[in-house]
Design a protein around this nucleic acid. Sequence first.
DNA 1: TATTGTTATACTCTATAACTATA
DNA 2: TATAGTTATAGAGTATAACAATA
Lengths: 154, 154
Amino acid sequence: MAPKADHDLASSDLDHLIGYNLKRVYMIFIAEFRSAWAENGLSTRSYSALSLMIAKPGITQSEIARTLGIERSGLVAIIDDLQTRGLAQREAVAEDRRVQALSPTDAGRTAYQNASEALKSNEDRLLSALSPTEQSQFRSILSKLRNAYEGDVS
Amino acid sequence: MAPKADHDLASSDLDHLIGYNLKRVYMIFIAEFRSAWAENGLSTRSYSALSLMIAKPGITQSEIARTLGIERSGLVAIIDDLQTRGLAQREAVAEDRRVQALSPTDAGRTAYQNASEALKSNEDRLLSALSPTEQSQFRSILSKLRNAYEGDVS
DNA sequence: TATTGTTATACTCTATAACTATA
DNA sequence: TATAGTTATAGAGTATAACAATA
């Protein structure tokens, strides 16, 4: 675990950089995710891949990679992990024998459901430091930035 | 470079998670930082450490570690890096021979100045996707979250 | 030719644990 | 005993480059 930051020390223009503040806040959320899932150890990447499979059963590794904005080579270990845990499966596709359709198992859907609920309440707890108005501003701002600078097209 | 995200693919409840959106936006800013500094290769960590030394010459590695919220063992490589580049120096302290006072060199101050200006204009460019009001809301929200969940004490 | 999944490899960031020299 | 700096080591997360099978 990273040590808590000590704020009365040398605060510099670092605190005026959006990028730095973004990183620190991201770290807060990541730590939260991990502490909520220390039990089963589902990583953020595995959770994300599972989420996409549930949203679109039959999705391929390349599609997941493109959606998450990572290289497809990175997906191999993620899917291996989910398969080892019995949460997802690869299936051959007759029409295109290069690809393998990915889908969640029943256990995968259950695990995802549980993870999502815990995650949701953890996020809500973190966000309680903000007013309801600020919470929706936060969502809107993050969304705007993603739309402006990511792949494009809704 | 990570591939651009493809958004018309399987958008799932992932997009409703603040943590996920935070990560994606953080990635946008990180990529920006790196592309702005590809020339000299100053890492975010080195930049941060340099910033703290300039704000408080004589600061120690342990103080920097606490301020940045990372382990002090991680500072060794960072300071080595800055020293190798001729941007910072370690100096013995008579009163406490365990510590070494860190300070920027003249070259360090200059490099930092240049980095800061480029960084600032890059951030401004990214933030131009937001209205001035949204920009200040964004700063305020990130700040509130840090104050609520980090070390404490201003 | 282009794409999918895969492997091998390496780099960045970070943590843990232990050591030493001081205090 | 406690702290500062250090080393060794390991683990995420990610990228690049190449290859075989298939389109």
